[in-house]
Amino acid sequence: MKGDYLGELEELVFLTISSLQQGDAYGVAIMNEIFEQTGREVNIGALHSVLKRLESKGYLKSKMGGATAERGGRRKRYFVVTPLGKKVTDEIISQKLQLYERVLGTTIKIL
C-alpha cells in the first residue's frame, strides 16, 4: 500500500523496538541498542522524528513512564509495537527472506 512502506532508519528503529523487552524501549535505550547491534550512532532528533512518524502510522503506541533524577525529573516515553506493527514486522522479515533466498538460491529456515 502506498505510504505504508518503511524507510531504512524507520525499519531499523522499528525492528530494534520489536527486539527490546516490552517496557524497555524509550529514546536513549533505543539509541544504545542500535549502537550495540549495528555500531551506528543515531541522532536523537532523527530518532524522535522517526518514532513520531511510526506512531502516527499506527505501528507503535506510547505511554509515559517514571521520572528519574538523571533525567532532571522528566518522564520517559515507552514505545510498544501494536498488532498492526507486528503484522508489518512479519511482512518485512518474509520479504527480506524471499529476496535472500533468491540471492542464495536456497531456502532459509528460521529456527
Binding site: Y26, V28, M64, G72, R74, R75, K76, R77
Partner: peptide, 16 residues
C-alpha cells in the same frame, strides 16, 4: 506534547 520525553532523553545523555 513531545517536550518532556525529548528533554529527558537529552538530560540523560548530558548526564552520561
Amino acid at each position: 506534547e513531545l517536550l518532556e520525553d525529548i528533554q529527558g532523553d537529552l538530560y540523560e545523555l548530558y548526564c552520561y
